[in-house]
Simulated scan of single mutants.
Amino acid sequence: MDGLPYSRALVIGAGSGISAAVARAFAGAGLKVALSARDTGKLAGLAAEVGAATFAADASDPAAVERLFAEVDGAMGAPDVVVYNPSLRARGSLLDLDPEEVRRAIEVSAFGGFLAAREAARRMVPLGRGALLFTGASASVKGYALSAPFAMGKFALRGLAQSAARELGPKGIHVAHVVIDGGVRSASRPEPADRPDSMLDPAAIAETYLSLLRQPRSAWSMEVELRPWVETF
């Protein structure tokens, strides 16, 4: 299993981009992979590629998250790696934002992370092992104008990761928060021809997630920041 001390991974908020690259990297390293999203229809190609099972769930709904983990338990066994990837943006001026849209953005970006962490911990703590990885963003550490809801959600997710790492680390569970500080390359968002490597490559991001799983517990990272070499910060 490529030297990994884990065997089963659940990627919540799966889709294209980072989560798909992480699923490919994990499967390539020998992990069984489960993919979760609100709409599993979009996961058919990726699931077939990596041999993953798919599960429909609203990551911000407590009952849905409990059901998701129970279904994964039954399908492949309790996951010993959980990746929380969902986020929701609500852009606009503080004067104009719809409070319900703001609430929803925070529920998806942060509250769902708590729900996933709780269910993961319920399974990992009795075993004394596991890994819980959270996908952050530039907004995790810097609030931009017209993007307060995203910053609120990502700041909260980072706080959750820090608290969970301090609580669960001594119990054998590796908690890490990955700050994606820059634009992520995709088919619909290619980097400028005159600025090669100016955007983050999802496959390169996934290598960092995989490297976190390989870290010996005597030198665990709690937070990793990733940015292209030309990114300002």
Rank of each mutant, 00 (worst) to 15 (best):
G41R: 02
V50T: 07
A29E: 10
A37S: 15
A29V: 14
A44Q: 10
F26E: 08
L31Y: 01
A53G: 15
R24Q: 15
L35Q: 02
S19M: 13
V33N: 00
F55D: 04
D39T: 15
A29K: 09
E49C: 03
D39G: 06
F26N: 02
A23V: 12
G45P: 07
A27C: 10
V22Q: 02
G45K: 09
G30M: 08
K42W: 11
A23K: 05
K42Y: 06
L35K: 01
V22T: 12
A20L: 11
A37M: 10
A25Y: 10
A53K: 09
A23H: 06
A48V: 08
E49T: 09
F26I: 11
V50I: 13
T54M: 05
V50M: 03
F55Q: 00
S36E: 10
F55V: 08
A21H: 10
A47Q: 03
V50R: 00
S36I: 13
G28P: 11
A23C: 13
A20R: 12
S36M: 11
A21L: 14
F55S: 05
F26P: 06
A44I: 07
L31R: 04
A20V: 12
A44C: 08
A47D: 02
R38G: 13
G41H: 03
G51K: 00
V50G: 01
L43T: 08
L35E: 00
A23W: 02
V33Y: 00
A37Y: 02
K42H: 08
K42D: 03
R24A: 14
G41K: 04
L35T: 04
L43D: 02
K42N: 10
A52K: 02
G41D: 00
G30T: 08
S36N: 12
V22M: 07
K42Q: 14
S19L: 14
A20Q: 13
V33G: 01
A25M: 14
A37E: 03
G45V: 11
A20M: 11
A52L: 05
S19R: 11
F26G: 04
D39E: 14
A47K: 01
R38A: 07
A29D: 09
L31V: 12
A29L: 13
T54C: 10
K42R: 15
G30R: 04
G45Y: 04
T54D: 01
L31T: 05
G28M: 09
G51D: 00
D39Y: 09
S36T: 13
G45W: 01
L43E: 05
V33F: 00
A21Y: 11
A34V: 11
